[in-house]
């Protein structure tokens, strides 16, 4: 499937798990988008993460999809390209209804906080595709 922003991420693996398709992805800190978002402070644009979800959902559907409606998309933590080795994109597609999330199996250590092992979710999306 064609990627809108060619070097934003790579898919490392895909597996099916209880009705969900789970894509293991890695973000590329050298992607040109970080030159502007933001200079000196690379933060993955929320909309690029949404596009990554749409492209993974297109893989599941076997055809390019259009995101026609977002009922709700919550972004509860900033995602930065340098911080995460891998992220999990979880896709559940039922006809035109899409449910998706982006999370990580383990949480990277931050200053004063040890790395965690609990799975955490950083973005959830409920919407409709066509």
């Amino acid at each position: 499937m064609t990627k809108l922003i060619e070097d934003f991420y790579d898919i490392l693996s895909r597996r099916d798990e209880g009705g969900e398709s789970v894509f293991e992805v890695t973000l590329n800190p050298a992607c040109k988008v970080y030159e502007g978002h933001f200079p000196g402070t690379p933060v993955s644009p929320g909309v690029c993460n949404i596009q990554m979800i749409l492209e993974c959902a297109s893989e599941v559907a076997g055809k390019p999809l259009m995101l026609t409606y977002i009922a709700q998309c919550r972004m509860t933590r900033l995602i930065t390209p340098n911080e995460f080795h891998t992220l999990e994109v979880r896709i559940s597609l039922d006809g035109e209804n899409l449910r998706a999330s982006i999370g990580a199996e383990s949480v990277p250590a931050q200053e004063g906080i040890e790395a965690g092992t609990e799975r955490e979710t950083y973005l959830t999306l409920k919407g409709t595709v066509a």
């Binding site: 009922a71 709700q72 998309c73």
Partner: peptide, 16 residues
């Protein structure tokens, strides 16, 4: 100041 999207709600896209 840096602004981030916290949530998108009831957003329709009708055309590209």
């Amino acid at each position: 100041r840096l602004g981030y999207i916290g949530e998108i709600k009831r957003l329709f896209v009708y055309a590209r």
